[in-house]
């Protein structure tokens, strides 16, 4: 690991200025991903600006009935928050299915959103990877790709986004508040992470020096009936092969409204717009659930090792929708 400078920021504007003016400076949150990358030699920042002491550590109700989550709120605290547990159970469940207790105690809301793929070729210095080293090629396409994307990937990159929390936020339609050198802006969660295209080294639409300060959850009554289901290779402490965050409002056997997002399948948390469109206004039946899943998967392009994700996504969607429908 290369020696680096460390500063603990107590003012957000100053923190942003410090990082913005040095191309090789980074914000440090919980460090659960960045510090690993520094140890592996994937990144060698000259300056770390620790933003965990900034006043972004609260979860507050918003006047419109929504909730504002400070970017420095730890994953454990967010999962335990009463507002979140009551109004957005899908988010609490997603958080608790991620990582381990120790990691959740450190990991922050903002950091969780910008964590990077766990693709083994990205995390290994000597294997070609367009995300780590643009133009070097993708080792996963011809290599080990069991964990990789089936939706929205490109010839340049088939990596997946590893977060559980972000999948729930995507289903909830959260907005991300960002502070940059030019001031504040708001990014819809669906526009924060990117699909890889020809530029897989760009995970997000954030510019260098932009700092996530908060995540706003909209007032969303149907989220009270929501669930997160994560399929993984062991009972705990594993990234999702496939996950689904679903909130649904069913009245008299008809789906009035629904939100569906998928994890483990794409370069970003995948909002299942096609499935939602098919479900909205349709009878809440097994056949409809299956048709909705199939519609979302119509353009799935499995790789050599991950064809199983297609039936796994379909079955997971159907199974969670069925369960939520039963609870109505």
């Amino acid at each position: 690991m290369k020696p680096f400078e460390y500063v603990r920021a107590d003012d957000a504007t100053q923190a942003v200025a410090m990082v913005a003016e040095r191309p090789n400076a980074r914000f440090l949150g919980g460090g659960t991903n960045l510090v690993d990358h520094m140890k592996l030699g994937l990144v060698e920042p000259e300056l770390l600006v620790d933003v965990t002491a900034l006043p972004f550590n609260r979860v507050e109700p918003l006047p419109d009935g929504g909730v504002r989550i400070g970017a420095a709120v730890r994953n454990s605290d967010l999962a335990a928050n009463p507002l979140v547990r009551q109004n957005y159970p899908v988010l609490a469940a997603a958080l608790l299915s991620g990582a381990s207790g120790q990691l959740r105690n450190l990991a922050t809301t903002g950091g969780n959103l910008v964590q990077r793929t766990r693709c083994p070729y990205f995390q290994t210095l000597y294997t070609p990877c367009n995300k780590r080293e643009p133009g070097s090629g993708c080792s996963a396409i011809t290599g080990h790709n069991r964990e990789h994307a089936i939706l929205g990937a490109s010839q340049a990159c088939v990596a997946t986004h590893p977060s559980d929390m972000a999948v729930a936020l995507t289903a909830l339609g959260a907005t991300v508040r960002v502070l940059g050198p030019a001031g504040e802006r708001v990014v819809p969660i669906g526009e924060l992470n990117r699909l890889p295209g020809d530029e897989p080294h760009q995970d997000t639409t954030l510019n260098h020096g932009e700092l996530i300060t908060a995540v706003d959850l909209p007032a969303l009554p149907l989220a009270k009936r929501s669930a997160y289901y994560k399929v993984r290779d062991r009972a705990s402490y594993a990234f999702a092969q496939v996950s689904a965050a679903i909130a649904v409002d069913i009245h008299s056997g008809v789906v009035r409204d629904v939100r569906v997002a998928l994890g483990g399948v794409a370069h970003k948390p995948w909002r299942a717009h096609r499935a939602e469109a098919l479900l909205r206004g349709a009878p809440a039946t097994e056949d409809v659930f299956r048709a909705a899943a199939d519609a979302e998967l119509a353009e799935a392009k499995p790789l050599s090792d991950n064809g199983f994700k297609v039936p796994m996504v379909r079955n997971t969607l159907v199974s969670v929708l069925r369960r939520l429908a039963r609870e109505h």
């Binding site: 294997t127 080792s139 011809t142 080990h144 062991r234 009972a235 705990s236 594993a238």
Partner: peptide, 25 residues
């Protein structure tokens, strides 16, 4: 072990990739 024939190595070479039973299992 996830063996990559091109690379000539085991590529799931950490405990996030090489799974061992957890307490929950």
């Amino acid at each position: 072990a996830a063996v990559d024939q091109h690379v000539g190595a085991v590529v799931n070479n950490d405990f996030a990739g090489y799974h061992i039973a957890t307490h929950a299992d």
